[in-house]
């Protein structure tokens, strides 16, 4: 590959795969999670999971959690770190256009996230017999919308936050409460009413419920609120990221 875009994609891919933490979270965390949970809880249907197996009941929620941790913590920390140490500044000293750099970076992160999340679903469905009552295509498309929106949020956070320490702190402070109220980690029914209504504002809750509904046979048309929230988030976060992105 001799084009700048091709080289950037190749180098960013290799760099990402060389970082043990990012390989784990971006590629292996999801699949491993499914394997471990499947091994522990087995594949038989249980009444507490609505007469479904543990994996079948939670598979898509876990994919949303993995996506949130990657997008809200790992990506901003990585981007801000490269800005802090002058790596982005070095690119600025060449004829490379910023848009080309960002496009390549987004492409790689999008591809790796997609591979990881799809792998997670495939393992859940083949090795542990999780079945969807809806359309798997609808689920995958919703996942792609979620990846796009959350990646844009990651870029916006990177643009807004002053240092990688701040990115780490803000990301973690943001993501764990969001996971708690997403319905993916703790059943929403077990939370107090007022927490539940506040939880509806969270994009992670919206994505989790959207994926769960599609998994259980719903359609995109049944989830227009979630689709508008995620679509709106994508537009707003992309705008913020483009407006405030800094090389140094």
């Amino acid at each position: 590959m001799t084009s700048a875009f091709g080289n950037l994609v190749a180098v960013q891919t290799k760099r990402t795969l060389r970082e043990p933490a990012s390989v784990f979270f971006m590629l292996a965390f999801g699949p491993l999670f499914v394997i471990i949970m499947g091994a522990i809880f087995g594949t038989e249907a249980r009444p507490e999971f609505g007469d479904r197996s543990f994996v079948e009941a939670n598979l898509v929620s876990f994919s949303a959690i993995v996506l949130a941790i990657t997008s809200f913590v790992m990506i901003p920390v990585d981007l801000v770190g490269q800005r802090d140490n002058g790596a982005l500044r070095r690119f600025r000293a060449t004829p490379l256009k910023p848009a080309k750099y960002i496009a390549a970076d987004v492409t790689v992160r999008f591809a790796i996230l997609t591979v990881s999340l799809v792998l997670m679903l495939v393992i859940g469905m083949t090795a542990f017999g999780a079945k969807t009552e809806g359309s798997i295509v609808a689920v995958l498309l919703a996942l792609l919308l979620g990846i796009s929106a959350f990646l844009a949020v990651g870029y916006a956070l990177a643009a807004a936050l002053p240092s990688s320490g701040a990115a780490q702190a803000v990301g973690n402070t943001l993501v764990y409460p969001l996971i708690m109220v997403s319905g993916g980690a703790v059943p929403l029914d077990s939370l107090p009413d007022n927490v539940r209504s506040v939880a509806q504002i969270s994009p992670l809750t919206q994505l989790t419920e959207f994926l769960q509904d599609l998994w259980q046979g719903g359609t995109w048309g049944d989830n227009l609120v979630a689709v508008s929230v995620l679509g709106g988030l994508l537009v707003v976060a992309t705008g913020l990221a483009a407006r405030f992105f800094r090389w140094e």
Partner: peptide, 11 residues
Amino acid sequence: LQLQTSALPPR
């Protein structure tokens, strides 16, 4: 350009 404060991406 060789800059006073610059780096390359890690790894």
